[in-house]
């Protein structure tokens, strides 16, 4: 193998390396938004999960401090506040462009409203009884 042949082969290899590098750059450019998207999708979920777990701890500590005499009103209040699902129902009713989703939203709003008013008012009745002293 003479020097000229060697130089030609080296040049061929260099050309291929450049082509590969260009391809890699293109692929990276293509992948970048995907990676970002993935991270963006994972991040809010982790954030929500963090908040969820912290709220579990808050709930745990707050509920242990509730006096046993008021465990029935506790159920009344937790029942009423769990109807906060009404927020999801309202968004579905107000934002959806599908009549089916709107119908489901409306039904959910109605059911949750029974609970909100019923739950808070029955708790108020219970607590009023604890207020009067004999």
């Amino acid at each position: 193998m003479n020097a000229e042949e060697l130089a030609l082969r080296a040049q061929g290899m260099a050309d291929r390396a450049i082509a590969l590098a260009l391809e890699a750059r293109a692929a990276a450019a293509e992948a970048a938004p995907l990676v970002e998207q993935g991270a963006a999708a994972a991040e809010p979920f982790l954030l929500l999960l963090t908040i969820f777990l912290l709220a579990c701890f808050v709930g745990y500590h707050v509920v242990w401090s509730v006096t046993p005499a008021l465990h029935s009103p506790l159920m009344g209040v937790t029942n009423a506040i769990s109807s906060v699902i009404v927020v999801g129902a309202m968004l579905a009713t107000g934002l959806a462009d599908s009549w089916l989703a709107q119908a489901f939203g409306f039904l959910a709003v109605t059911l949750a409203a029974v609970n909100i008013f019923g739950g808070f008012l029955v708790t108020r009745r219970m607590l009023a009884m604890f207020q009067r002293k004999g």
């Binding site: 929500l48 908040i51 969820f52 709220a55 579990c56 808050v58 709930g59």
Partner: peptide
């Protein structure tokens, strides 16, 4: 967020 926090409170209770 509100649904998640409230759900956790009620679930724990």
């Amino acid at each position: 967020l509100l649904l998640i926090v409230t759900g956790a409170l009620v679930g724990a209770s």
